[in-house]
Computed example of a mutant assay.
Amino acid sequence: MPINSRTLTAAIASGCALLASPAAAQDDPSDGAKRTRVALGPQVKPSWPGAEDVSFGPLVDFATAYGDTPFEFEAPDESFGFAVATSDDFAVGPVLSFESKRDSADVGGVLPDVDFSLEVGGFVNYTVSENFRLRAEARQGVTGHEGFIAVLGADFITRDADEYLLSIGPRVTLADSSYQDAYYSVTPAQSIASGLPAYDASGGVQSVGVVIGYIQQLSERWGIYTYAEYDRLVDDAANSPVVTTFGSRDQYSGGIALTYTFDGGIF
């Protein structure tokens, strides 16, 4: 596949996953010998927020555990990050995420580019019980859209140690007016040039959705990791002429990877 901005974004994000694993920051070496699980495979994501088309990229996951302690649960849609403060129920830490460039050609060549977006922020996890976790994640774009975005989620988790893990949960995504303007608004000048109606997208709830993840160990070393995500644009994002003309209110993501578990660690 030719190298393009979206492929490069995915590759950079994959590398960051190796350096910013939440499990690596929280495990206690006193619990026993270190184990590492690495997953690698393909995934698809919307080409840009609100796109009808999807883009292919690598799916990389990295986790560590000690002794007989199972690998810590991590939802498939979490940004790359690590905990800096933990308790029995809470974990707090920084996150890093990316949004690939939206080219003018993606929207008929009549609207401006939205440059590659680097987003930095933080997360809070609250473990309600062994089988239920809440998470809030907030990020600020420092390039590209330069807007604010937050994701609220809950996950029901069922597992047999590391033999298998199934998770499913709802998601609500919120965005401020800067983020919404970048992808969904049409200024009067752009309206004249494009023929689209002028549109001012306000901040608020951008989408609602659900994420499902599944990990199955096939042998002592090998396993399968897969996930699927569906988001439905709502309110101002859903009604944007950018979406109704060039995109879709239905947003799909998914991937499948082969996992390999070995003794020791990468670092």
Rank of each mutant, 00 (worst) to 15 (best):
P188M: 05
G109F: 06
D53A: 14
Y179M: 06
Q251A: 06
R37I: 00
F116H: 06
D28M: 02
T226L: 01
G50H: 02
L174E: 01
D103A: 12
V92Q: 00
A237R: 12
R249E: 15
R232N: 12
A39C: 02
Q251S: 07
K101C: 07
Q180L: 15
S202A: 13
L40P: 01
S191L: 00
F267K: 00
P46F: 00
D68I: 11
V60A: 04
V186F: 11
D155Q: 12
Q26S: 15
V243T: 15
A65W: 13
A198V: 09
Q251L: 02
G121M: 01
D200N: 13
P42N: 09
P2C: 02
S100W: 02
G255I: 09
Q217V: 08
R139I: 01
S100M: 03
T143V: 02
E137K: 13
S219I: 13
T7A: 10
T244L: 12
S14F: 08
S177Y: 03
S248V: 08
T158N: 09
A24L: 15
Q180I: 11
W48T: 00
R35P: 02
E137F: 07
E229M: 03
A63D: 14
H145T: 07
C16F: 14
V128G: 02
K101R: 06
I3V: 12
S97G: 13
A10N: 14
A136I: 05
L218C: 11
G41Q: 07
A182F: 15
Q43D: 09
G141E: 03
Y183R: 10
G264Y: 01
A13Y: 14
V142I: 07
I168E: 06
Y126L: 14
D103K: 13
A39F: 01
S117I: 10
K45A: 09
R221G: 03
G203A: 06
V234C: 09
I168C: 05
Y66I: 08
S194F: 07
Y199I: 12
A105K: 10
Y179K: 10
G67I: 08
Y184A: 02
G57K: 01
A161K: 12
G169K: 04
Y214N: 12
E163W: 14
G144Q: 02
E74N: 10
S47C: 04
F82V: 04
V114F: 00
Q180F: 15
A198R: 11
D31A: 05
L233G: 01
T244H: 15
S100T: 09
T187Q: 07
G93T: 11
M1F: 08
T245H: 06
E163P: 08
L196C: 00
G264N: 04
